[in-house]
Amino acid sequence: MAFGEGAQLSQRAWFFQGMRGLFSLPAFILMMAFVGFTALAHESGLERGEAVFMTAIVWALPSQMVLVSAMQSSAGLLTTFIIVCLASVRLAPMVAALVPEIKTSRTRAVTLFFLSHFVAITAWVFTLQRIKAIPRECRTAYFAGLGLTLTSVNTLIVFFLYGIVSTLPPILAGTLYFLTPIYFLTSLWGSSSSRVIHLALGGGILLTPVFHLMLPDFDILAVGLVAGTGAYAIDLVLRRREVTGE
């Protein structure tokens, strides 16, 4: 079984490569964002254990922020469930877009369900940026190494810094908070050279204030559907033109 052993060895190597994603700019920015989250959770009156537990099992920063503010205002279970759902719907198409890129015909469903927990914006963008350079049969191993490492290290950050970073100077706190959107913006744009992605990103940003005024509770959902479908339609028309050579 020399072939099988070789494949296993390289899967282990790619898992390790995924782990090394911890020492990258995006991972550093994510850690800074979790330092910010630690301060926010402490300020909002959460216990250390609650913030740590939440980071490990929710693992999506925007959803965690919504959850923290709901807990702070003593919102009911059902209300909170619904608003967290609205903040998390985006994960469905994100996972659906990642799965065809990382699976092989032999990947088990249970592996994908397990790995899907580690999908959040940072790991998603990071993986999509590098996926083409990774042999297909090692992609799940790579993502597992990256996802498990990012989640556990950030959970540890929340644990160890709880109560320590409760009083960041305002300029530092504001700048840390701003790091996240500006990083997502540049990395998502840079992760792809495809027109449809740039259209979706630009359109989505421009349409957000419009839908925030029109449908404040469903703004992100509306932006996703309208800007995503619009970007797809424009790209489709342009592709057809390119084919017919007009």
Binding site: V89, M94, P181, L188, A200, G204, I205, T208, A227, G228
Partner: peptide, 15 residues
């Protein structure tokens, strides 16, 4: 993929 990207764009713009 376009829809997932636009949803993330919405998160970015809101932040």
């Amino acid at each position: 993929k376009a829809t997932a990207t636009a949803l993330v764009a919405g998160v970015i713009a809101k932040q």
